[in-house]
């Protein structure tokens, strides 16, 4: 959960990103700093075929890759379409916009930075019913807290 005092931005590109572009963008965003939490959204890329006659067979997908963000390896499980950020304060937003413009300058498609509220601030009754009283509040509302493997922590300079 988050306190409502922290500003949030959403980065939406008009095309789905290749892992290389996502890696480049995320590393550039980290340089801006001031990011408390980050969530990468997009359609799922399952490791096995989820349904149909070939259900359960391995699903090799070239975009389901490990990328290097800061000092951490991140296993991509989605095709990156949207990045949600929670910032420490408003002063970082121009820097984020600049970073996005810089990365997408030569890509041939656009990307917008929106401000708003994209993360939950309070657990809902459904969350309680689904995940129980001990669900990890840090990731509730961003990903399924029941999923194995917690968040990736990228150390800042402070």
């Amino acid at each position: 959960m988050t306190d409502a005092i922290y500003p949030q931005v959403r980065i939406v590109s008009t095309r789905f990103l290749k892992p290389e572009t996502a890696e480049q963008l995320l590393n550039r965003l980290i340089q801006v700093g001031g990011i408390r939490r980050m969530s990468i959204n997009g359609p799922n890329l399952p490791a096995t075929v989820p349904y149909g006659p070939a259900r359960g067979q391995p699903n090799p997908h070239p975009d389901r890759k490990v990328i290097r963000v800061g000092d951490q390896d991140v296993q991509l499980q989605v095709q990156v379409g949207t990045i949600i950020l929670e910032l420490e304060d408003d002063s970082y937003i121009p820097g984020i916009e600049e970073a996005v413009d810089e990365v997408f300058a030569d890509k041939g498609f656009s990307c917008t930075v929106q401000q708003g509220r994209y993360m939950k601030t309070k657990p809902t009754v459904s969350d309680y019913a689904r995940y129980g009283p001990d669900a990890d509040e840090k990731i509730l509302g961003l990903v399924d807290p029941g999923k194995k493997g917690g968040p990736t922590i990228i150390q800042g300079t402070r």
Binding site: S13, T14, F16, L17, T21, P43, V49, H61, D63
Partner: peptide
């Protein structure tokens, strides 16, 4: 995939590629 954004190279999204 039919209603999703296209991939960077212009291909329609396909979970199974």
């Amino acid at each position: 995939g039919h209603s999703l954004r296209l991939a960077e190279n212009g291909m329609m999204f396909d979970m199974l590629q």
